[in-house]
Write a protein that binds this DNA or RNA. Structure first.
Lengths: 136, 136
DNA sequence: GCAAAAAAAGGTATTTTTATCCTTTATTTT
DNA sequence: AAAATAAAGGATAAAAATACCTTTTTTTGC
């Protein structure tokens, strides 16, 4: 469903949300250790998120990543779209290019609801809403 | 969600089901062209399915793949398990090793229902039930 | 028996994804 | 100003997934 990059991205953002309010920023090293994921790989992902203004960063001593007041308003869906592409939640589960409600694949109806449920959760749930250990 | 191998596998089996009753067997070439997927890659997948007794095959002229009376009773879930592994429908959507109902990841509850819906469809729907162009 | 057909099997090649390394740039502290 | 810190960026490496090619085995029809 989601690539590892995307999984790491969502989890990293959740980490930032949970630690928002702390005065100090979270460095790649800290996040990677907390999530138990490869540090340099995560660094790339955080760069991408930062470039797309989904998270914020400061360089230098005491620097790291954090969420500003704009970041918290973005829905989680944007993370997915930035990392895995906008089509992730539209793709046919059997990879048929022609799959749609009009020309459903044999699993279409079973998967469609699932996908839309996820999409709506990811659209509704903002990055900020993950603060204080809340779920989506 | 499913690897391409698995997507091709399910679609190929569906093709066999739809063409069951025809007196002639379906060759790799025929199936690959019908599904618009790489022939040699599909050949490997069909081999695997055959080795696991999910489909049947005969070599030589007039040979090819078909479904026998045992094959038709297997649920589609077995295809998924053979190709992508038994854990496919249990894995956490965010890749957290510890994710469970007791320790849910932040998308757990939204994804859980989806996964179980799919699992139940794939368990209920046998290969044979795809004959006559039926869906799951 | 022989030639052709078609799957089985094994190996190789390509592409994509995941992961690491190393240098540069920006910032902060001393 | 110098040193330390941490992200940014570029290039490379390793692994996995996908795709292709060649040979072998089996079967069929002549």
């Amino acid at each position: 469903m989601f690539s590892k990059s995307c999984q790491y991205a969502i989890r990293a953002v959740a980490y930032l949300a949970e630690h928002k309010g702390t005065d100090k920023n979270a460095g790649v090293k800290e996040i990677a250790e907390a999530l138990q994921v490869p540090q340099q790989f995560l660094a790339k992902i955080l760069q991408t998120l930062s470039r797309h203004n989904l998270i914020s960063s400061v360089k230098g001593p005491g620097g790291g990543f954090y969420l500003d007041e704009t970041n918290v308003n973005a829905p989680l869906l944007e993370i997915v779209e930035v990392i895995d592409g906008k089509n992730t939640l539209n793709a046919c589960i059997l990879g048929k290019p022609t799959c749609s409600s009009e020309h459903p694949c044999l699993l279409h109806q079973h998967f469609h609801g699932c996908r839309e449920g996820l999409r709506s959760a990811l659209s509704t749930c903002t990055i900020g809403s993950l603060m204080d250990g809340k779920s989506c």
